[in-house]
């Protein structure tokens, strides 16, 4: 059955067509913000590892600046204040994605930097000993291992991004929150609407985590590491105090 149809009973049928529109916009904002954030995170994260001050300092300034204030302040500034200076007004969704990308990119830069630094020194030295060029070192030795280390924190960051997209509603982008507010204002049952909104956000968060887990497995396989099971078995303490693997959860 189509979950977006208006044939569903009661408030659910009343709300779902609108919430589905909103969910689509939330997905757009998340994907757009993620794409921009990823580019900025890699650019700034790698720049911060540069031996040259002239490269390192701007990256550092970008990071501190955008981590110093929250997305909502940046979004308001880009949407309301920037046009006064430039005379050119961005579309609300574009302004929202720009603010989300700039903000999460600054947090991502730290993840990228940390991921590269987490690669054991010996790997770099071995690549130098094998006469790899700096590009080859990065591309074939450092980056694949660094990426594997980055994936779990990037998962958290993507969830933060998903949550932050709720703020685009404040600059009149029709996302989930915007639609829920419109429904509440038009007299729909508030509790039902908000429960549906929360469920959709949880589904999205679950989807992001599932995709990132799959990527982690792929990376692990590529690097010839042990592949973690998709559904980690729960370790439980038995009465004797030893660790035993419970049967539940295996699929």
């Amino acid at each position: 059955m189509n979950p977006c149809s208006s044939d569903l009973p009661g408030t659910v049928g009343e709300a779902m067509p609108f919430l589905c529109d909103g969910a689509l916009v939330t997905a757009q904002a998340t994907l757009g913000g993620a794409a921009l954030a990823l580019v900025l995170a890699f650019a700034a994260g790698l720049a911060m590892l540069s031996p040259r001050r002239l490269v390192r300092v701007p990256a550092r300034v970008y990071m501190e600046f955008f981590r110093g204030t929250s997305v909502i302040v940046q979004m308001f500034w880009i949407f309301f204040a920037l046009p006064v200076l430039t005379g050119y007004r961005l579309a609300p969704l574009a302004a929202g994605i720009l603010a989300l990308g700039l903000n999460l990119g600054a947090y991502g830069a730290e993840v990228v930097r940390g991921g590269v630094l987490a690669v054991p020194r010996a790997q770099r030295e071995a690549a130098i000993a094998l006469n790899f060029s700096p590009y080859q070192r990065m591309r074939y030795v450092i980056m694949p291992q660094a990426l594997a280390a980055m994936l779990p924190p990037l998962n958290n960051l993507l969830i933060e991004l998903l949550k932050a997209t709720s703020l685009v509603s404040a600059i009149s982008v029709g996302d989930l929150i915007f639609e829920s507010k419109a429904l509440i204002n038009s007299g729909s049952d508030r509790a039902v609407v908000m429960v549906l909104v929360m469920v959709i956000y949880l589904l999205y968060a679950g989807l992001i985590t599932a995709v990132m887990r799959l990527l982690e497995r792929r990376m692990a396989r590529m690097l010839g590491r042990e592949v973690r099971p998709l559904w980690p078995r729960r370790r439980r303490r038995s009465a004797g105090g030893e660790l035993t693997v419970a049967a539940g959860g295996a699929r």
Partner: peptide, 17 residues
């Protein structure tokens, strides 16, 4: 639940629901 949903949605629940 609280960590994977937006603060704004939670504020709406407290304020409107």
């Amino acid at each position: 639940l609280i960590r994977s949903t937006p603060l704004l949605a939670q504020l709406f629940i407290l304020y409107y629901v």
